[in-house]
Structures are given as C-alpha cells and as structure tokens.
Write a protein that binds this DNA or RNA. Sequence first.
DNA 1: CGGTATCTTGAATTCGGTCAATAGTTGTGG
DNA 2: CCACAACTATTGACCGAATTCAAGATACCG
Lengths: 246, 246
Amino acid sequence: MGAIHSDTAALIRKLESIAPLAPDEKAALLRLPLRLKTVAADQDIVCEGDTPSECCLIVEGFACRYSLTAEGKRQILSFHISGDIPDLQSLHLDVMDHSLGTLVPSKLAFIQHDDLRSLMRNQPRLGDLFWRDTLIDAAVFRQWLVGIGRREAYGRIAHLLCELLVRLRAVELVEDHAFNLPVTQAELGDALGISTVHVNRVLQELRGENLISLSGSSLKVLDWEGLQEAGEFDATYLHLVKKEAL
Amino acid sequence: MGAIHSDTAALIRKLESIAPLAPDEKAALLRLPLRLKTVAADQDIVCEGDTPSECCLIVEGFACRYSLTAEGKRQILSFHISGDIPDLQSLHLDVMDHSLGTLVPSKLAFIQHDDLRSLMRNQPRLGDLFWRDTLIDAAVFRQWLVGIGRREAYGRIAHLLCELLVRLRAVELVEDHAFNLPVTQAELGDALGISTVHVNRVLQELRGENLISLSGSSLKVLDWEGLQEAGEFDATYLHLVKKEAL
DNA sequence: CGGTATCTTGAATTCGGTCAATAGTTGTGG
DNA sequence: CCACAACTATTGACCGAATTCAAGATACCG
C-alpha cells in the first residue's frame, strides 16, 4: 500500500532515458503517492471501455497493450517494461480504446490522475516530459506500422528484438546483449501480425544465422550489427537521450 | 504572408470537434501568428531527419505522413485534413522520424514552436487540448495497427473509409455521406499495406456490394451501416465530442 | 509425475503480390 | 478543340510468403 521511494526509481530511470531531470523534479516525482499492487501473469490491468481515474506504472514485470477483433483475433499494440506508464493517455482520453494486461507476474504502482495533474501544474517541465513520453509511444506505433505493413516476417521480428534490446538497455535491464523476454511465440505473433507457426520458423532462421540465441525466455543478441541490418533498425525513433553505440 | 482569421478557423473547427473551447481560448488561437503557404501536390512539407522549429497547420488540402523502407517501399502512416497539425509532435520530439507531404495542392499555415509554447503557457487548457490531439493521433495509429495486423484487405479499406468519413464530417467536409478523396489507389495501398492491384479489386468488391460509389476522387458512402460492419468500425477511438449517430 | 502450455515440424491451402498488358483520365500545349 | 504525354485504373495469369490444419516433441508447474 504505502509508497517506497525505490518504486518511483523505476519511473525516474525511465524518464531520465528520454530527457534530463532536475533535482527538484526528481524530488517532486518521489513525492508522488503510489498505490502498489502485485498481479499475476496474463491479468488485465485496464480494459477497453474503462474510464480510469489513475495511471499504471510498471515497476517490475512485462505488460502489453492489445485490441481484440470481432473474430477474436488479438493485436498486441506495444510491449511495456519497468518504468513505463502505458496508460498515461487516460489523463486526456477518458475512455480506453484498447486493453492493457500483464504478460508475467508484475509489480505495479497506480498513480491518481489528480496527483499527476497537480505534479505537472507545479512542475511544468515534467508535464512536457510526460507529453514527450506519449509522443515516443506514438513513434513506436508508427514504426510497428511500417514493419507490419511493409516488412516481411523476418525483418519484423528482427526489428522488434532490436527495439526491446534498446529500450531495456535504457533502463538497465540488459547485460552483455542479453535480456529476459517473457513472451511466448504466440504473443510475438499477435504483436507482429503473423501466425505462431511462422514466428517459430523465422526465429529458427535468426538462430540459424547466429544473430540471436534463445533458450527459454532468455534472449541473447549474438550479432547486434547483423540483427539491426536484418530489421533495418535505427533507434532514432525512440528519441533517447543517450545515443550510445553498441 | 499575413494571417487572416479565416485560416485559424480551420484549426478552431477541428479542436472543437475534440473538446469544447472557451471564448478566450478561441480568441487566443486567433491571435496566433501564421505564415501562410500554398504548395503543390506531392510535395514534402517536412522530411525524416529534419528538426523543425515550426508546426504545419493544414488549412485546406490533404496530406499524409509516411516512411520509406530500405527497399523503397512506402508506408503511409496517417492522412491529414483541414484543421490538422500533423507535426505537432515536433514540439517535443526534435528530430522527425518520418516525413510529411501533400497529396493535393494545399494551403498550409506554419506556426512557430515558440508561439505555440507561449500560447499554451497562457492557456494551459489549450496545452492539454493539443496534447489530447496527439493522443488521438496515437489512437489512430493503434487502430491502423489492428487493421494491418489482423484484418484482411476488405475490412481494412472499409475501416479506413469509415475513419475518413467521420473525421471529415467532424470538420464539415462531408455532405450527404459523400466526400472528396483525392487519394490514388497506389496511395491507399501504401497506407493499408496492400498492393495497388489488390486495392483495386477490393474497391470493386465494395462497389459491387453497393457499400460505396467512387467516381474520380469523389466517394459516396451508400450503405453506412454496411460499411461500418465490413470494417468493424467503432468511432470511439477518435474521441470526438459529438458522438452523433449516422 | 501427470497435465497443460509451448514449441516444432510437415503438408496443403490461400490471400495477396508481382508481372505485364490494356483501358481510361487528366492536363498541356499547339 | 484536338493530340500527345503521363498518370491512374483495370484485368488476367502466375507466384510465393504466410496461413491453417494436424500431429508430435519439449518444457514447465503444481
């Protein structure tokens, strides 16, 4: 229930990856009241049609946004990791037009809209920063559009893996080009608009070419240059502060 | 060069479609300095890699955002109409991660970032409204993701036509379920991730079922209910003020 | 140690793509 | 007002990436 500073740390780390933070801004963030909650895997956090009065910060875990079509097909719209606030948009869009759910057991922190609003009133630069965050969100959607619309499965998967590597690295969840990818092949397919079977085959291709190794949920990028080429990946669209090489 | 009130009117009309505007907010918008420009069809307004210092309001015309892949394939990311500011994001994302271009001869009005910033400082509610606009933008991207990822060509086209009808109607550019669609079949294909040839065939299907009629660039929706069903269309994601029927 | 979820593999199928050629349209200049 | 040029729409034949269906093989979990 009570908020501990270490939970806000995930948010601060994430925000610092997309813009510098002043000390008083950090302090203001740390004062943000959080309602902590631990949820199991595959649980909905917010559903299409809901009108939330709080936002959800992912402290630890993995989540995704998704929509379902009439025929019951699922399209995953984005993946979210530690530090993300996937439903930040609910601040200005009353009704959810998609759902948000966990992929693994996760630690969440809910923040009241009102608290966010007064935070942004007192720290306008933080308001701009949150806006920026939602804009980067949109940039990711655009990139996915290009992938799904114009790249074939091979490049799509490569691109997604590149994106996850860079985003996870930005919040220090990558070590030696390896990270935890708790996503089934079916979920990858739902994200990339391809079938599970095909995801499987393409992953084998990527492994066969020694671009990645994948055992269980731990993924290691063996050939970062090669994987970027395969996915035509250019991290510019993530608008990170550090444009670190490698 | 000089700005005339009637140009800002397009913006006001659009903003009022997504939230109510107070009189003093309208007045502040009308005071916004505009740099007018008329451009021909198929001209780039802003290019990937640019770092604009102004935003582009579309007064009249039709524009689209797009990206090109290494193999030269184009993915159109969104269409934009009178009242839209397609590159509003450049306020907070310095580098363009995609391009913006006209589809037909268009009347544009450029607004300095600085002018927008001071406007939003004086009228915080307008700042929120612009933020909301970029969030709706993102909602449209998400909807396109669902379409391209999980719907087949038939539903995709139907959905896009529904979206355009509703958005154009919101800015009073639809009369009797008919509107001007100055988009070639090749461009539709680039937007929907399908080939020109297939766009052609699907359009014929839609005509064959008397859902639409299309002659030249003027499109008329003959069966609005049917078209919505065909595209599984639900306008909620556009977050318009008026949830008008029909 | 079963039971369920996930991953693999193969074969047949299909939606949509590519190639290529034929109509229509539109715009321009003479 | 006509003719050419250039773009856009339409059609047909063939192809191929990815899907679907179906069946095993592994892995994970209580």
